[in-house]
Amino acid sequence: MFSILSTNFDSYYINNGKTVTVRQATILDAERMLVAATKALVDAPYMLSTVEDTQKLTLEDMEKVLSMIVKNPNYVQFIAEVDGRLVGAIDFRNGDKEKISHQGAFGMTVLPEYRNYGIGRALLETLINWAKNNSKIEKVCLEVMEDNIGAIKLYKTMGFVEEGRKTKGVKIENSYQDLILMALFV
């Protein structure tokens, strides 16, 4: 069973003088998350998902995903809110087989008009704290496009290290980007 309203949240001061609240998402956030995901992908050249990908999702699809996340103690979905507006999200899922269940990966989005204010850092700090308090999770992983210098810098300041590359891991029209594999042991 899951809680309808999240009482656990973290507050952070961000670069524009406002406060961002980061909390676990609930099924009641599904519609807002769908709308925000589409907006976050409009001007997001470094995201692996596209607006077209999110337009294929229904509200029922999002509710099912959130329900699955809430039921698994090693999955989590956080959302970031500023003045009550959903401005970012981060999700984490661990490996689904016993031998890889100690590690997992995350994906993160922030609305374009809220980028470079510290929202990503707030989401990531919350995720890392969650992982440190989860007895199963030992390693948090990510993939980032090689040209996403701002994100790579953030990840390095948070303690992530490069573990390898997927050469030409992303194809955009007729050009390629390597995916840098990074990880943090918690």
Rank of each mutant, 00 (worst) to 15 (best):
I149D: 12
N16Q: 14
Q55S: 12
I4A: 15
L142V: 09
K166A: 14
K56C: 11
N15S: 14
G84V: 06
F106E: 00
I69V: 12
Q177Y: 15
I119M: 04
D147G: 14
G169K: 05
K136L: 11
V186I: 05
R23F: 10
A122G: 09
M62H: 01
A25P: 04
V82C: 15
I4F: 15
F92L: 11
L123P: 13
T109H: 13
V20L: 06
A131F: 01
C141L: 09
G84F: 06
D43A: 07
R23T: 10
M33K: 02
I137E: 13
R23D: 08
I14Y: 07
N16I: 14
R32A: 12
E81P: 04
K132E: 03
K64F: 04
M145S: 05
Q77P: 01
K168S: 02
R85F: 09
L41D: 07
I172R: 04
A183Q: 03
E162S: 11
T19R: 11
T157P: 03
E162Y: 06
A30G: 01
G95C: 09
M33R: 02
T21S: 11
F92D: 02
L59E: 10
A89K: 10
V110Y: 01
F160G: 00
Q103V: 15
I69Q: 02
C141S: 06
V35Q: 07
D10K: 09
M158V: 04
K56W: 08
I119E: 01
A30T: 01
G104W: 01
I69P: 01
D29N: 13
V82M: 13
L59T: 07
I137R: 11
A105Y: 00
A122P: 06
N174D: 15
V110N: 02
D29Q: 08
L48V: 07
M158S: 04
K139Y: 08
I149R: 11
I119H: 02
V144Q: 02
L57S: 07
I27V: 12
T21H: 13
H102D: 14
L179G: 03
F160I: 02
T58P: 09
A183D: 06
L28A: 14
M68V: 05
F185N: 08
G169H: 06
L86D: 08
F106H: 03
K97R: 15
D91H: 08
L154D: 00
D147V: 05
N116V: 10
T126W: 09
V20I: 09
G95V: 06
Y114G: 05
E52F: 13
G120R: 05
D178T: 04
M145P: 03
I137Y: 13
G88K: 02
N16A: 14
D43G: 04
D96A: 14
T54K: 13
D43R: 07
Y13S: 14
A30L: 02
D147H: 12
L179D: 05
W130T: 10
G104F: 03
T54Y: 14
A40H: 02
K136R: 12
T126P: 10
Y114L: 07
I180L: 15
F160P: 00
Y13C: 11
I137C: 13
L127T: 01
R85L: 11
Y13P: 07
A80V: 09
G120S: 10
S49W: 07
T19K: 13
